[in-house]
Design a protein around this nucleic acid. Structure first.
Lengths: 342, 342
DNA sequence: CTGAAAGCGCTAACAA
DNA sequence: TTGTTAGCGCTTTCAG
């Protein structure tokens, strides 16, 4: 019962029918076959231990029933939850999903773009740090972008309203009396993307007629390493205690790492410095103190992205869709109420 | 410059050469082509925006340069770190790796097994909860198993010595004076696998001539939900304070969740109950108190698995290899020294 | 160095 | 209901 290349030809021969007939029985698209032949063919298949080579089939049908989800970091629950939602939805429709994790590396992104371009996948859902719209269009298969790219005019996108999300956090800090609010966000991504959080920050300060201190904007990668860098830079900043009272982090990984890291240096989060995260991953409620953050609807983002892709893969085209969800403040304990006298 | 199916035929025509010649230039396997023709072909490719369809190529060459890594949970750093190490190694050799996360679901596993069986991948590295060796052998491509499966006689495996790992934790608890040690481990996986931790537990008790309390063995899924279930069951156990003084968890996710969960119910980890984890994921050092755990060499496991697969994919066969690494105790603060009088 | 022809394993018309 | 005949897009002998 070794797997020496048995193709439908062998099966056909053994069953005494033609290749087409075998094809009809193995491809579920219901070609009519008499019960008798069906029986014979199935027996032959069994006997030979035949396996359908769907890659060859795909060459004709141009379908692989496989979609690629390319995200920056599977280890970050924010992304893995989205991926899970996508997977749940797509599997329901008979697709298999595989993940490509780029770890914020452009080189890896290119690799996955290449992979996707080779028509191996029926569709792709991605978030790439390089804002290369051309590349996405060049994939040759339906693609849905996760996130918010103002540059991506002609591409389906689903994500969170970053400006709104940032403002929610900022407003909250302000409302509790913070006036010197720092921002930590990604150096990756398009300038446009970066500027969404940065812009919200600046606008927010402007509205409140607060001064803008450029040194209070930290540019770091949105992972643990970035969090450590952030804390290091923050604490080596001259007179930071006099200069900052709040910190909005670009994502929860950053915020959580920062909380733990600050504490190591004797800075008490939520007392000495208020911290607000973004995403609301499970670990956010387990920090000490628990992290106040801005929740993004991860499950929903994933589900909608999957549904959208599904429609595109079914050939339903039309104007590019833009789904932008708003984020919700989750109040926990990492922000101090500065209006109260201690 | 639309992507209307341009194949080598179009390119060949435009360049005024044959398909074969085009094939020679696009497949890097150095078929000799004169500089002049090369130039012409390349120009044609450029002009037409031609993209090589490697899926079609793979149909002939039987190579896809793509490998599947199938693991139970990408969101668990233990697995994502292994996956990352695999990816790093394999990409160096020109392969692309995609991830399949089964979330401990047998149905999903089947799905990925199917996918892999269709000869889309040149190889697969996996850890499956269903201990189906036949299935792995039936993949038709080289496969490396992550973990330890005594049943997997004929399959390459690389993993940690689970018995040894469990014993390290157990011994440590014992050495600090614990005598009523509970165990929380997976209900998934083969009986054999499950029993590795359980067996270590039992043997350990036996050696020490300690009584074995079957109610002190908790069977839960190795994720956060399992952690919550564990704590619930633990605390509803009759007279738990009199019955247990230590708890060894099957992985860190379980242990970390348990730490946080116990605290919610007023049980102080490291004081009221000692907890030891397994894996040593980054979050383990960030809990309160920091988790004492048994470190598994994740990067090494991934790297070795990748190297092994690589050799197999290069056609270097031979006796199945078994790599079993030992684990190392990482002492932090979740275990109380019961020998000291408080 | 280059081209013609024959597939890789399957599916899709079109006849029969 | 079934078989025949062409391909899908590429690689691979084998001649030239």
């Amino acid at each position: 019962m070794k797997d020496t290349k048995i193709s439908i030809l062998e099966v056909a021969r053994l069953a005494g029918v033609s290749k087409s007939t075998v094809s009809r029985v193995i491809s579920d698209r219901g070609g009519s076959v008499s019960p008798k032949t069906l029986e014979r063919v199935n027996r032959a298949i069994e006997q030979l231990g035949y396996r359908r080579n769907s890659i060859a089939a795909g060459l004709r049908t141009r379908k692989s029933y496989m979609v690629l989800v390319m995200i920056p970091d599977v280890a970050n629950p924010f992304w893995s939850e989205i991926a899970k939602a996508i997977q749940d939805q797509l599997e329901l429709a008979g697709y298999s999903v595989v993940l490509g994790s780029t770890y914020w590396s452009e080189e890896r992104e290119s690799r996955y773009y290449e992979l996707a371009r080779m028509s191996r996948f029926d569709g792709v859902i991605l978030n790439s740090v390089t804002d290369n719209i051309e590349r996405i269009k060049n994939l040759g298969v339906p693609a849905v972008l996760i996130g918010e790219r103002t540059a991506a005019q002609n591409i389906d996108t689903v994500g969170t309203d970053t400006m709104q999300a940032a403002r929610v956090g900022l407003e909250y800090l302000y409302s509790l009396g913070h006036r010197k609010i720092a921002l930590a966000t990604s150096e990756h991504g398009s300038e446009r993307y970066l500027s969404l959080r940065a812009r919200a920050h600046r606008e927010s300060l402007h509205e409140k007629a607060l001064p803008f201190d450029p040194e209070l904007v930290f540019s770091v990668t949105l992972n643990e390493e970035g969090g450590r860098t952030l804390v290091h830079e923050f604490l080596t900043m001259h007179d930071w205690r006099g200069r900052a009272d709040g910190l909005l982090c670009g994502n929860d990984i950053l915020a959580i790492t920062a909380i733990n890291e600050f504490r190591k240096f004797g800075v008490i989060p939520g007392i000495d410095l208020s911290i607000v995260g973004m995403d609301d991953i499970p670990a956010a409620s387990q920090t000490y103190p628990p992290l106040t953050t801005v929740r993004k609807p991860k499950e929903r983002i994933g589900r909608i992205a999957a549904e959208l892709l599904l429609r595109r893969m079914q050939g339903i085209f039309g104007a590019p869709e833009k789904h932008l969800f708003s984020a919700e403040l989750i109040i926990r304990d990492s922000v101090r109420d500065k209006r109260k006298t201690t």
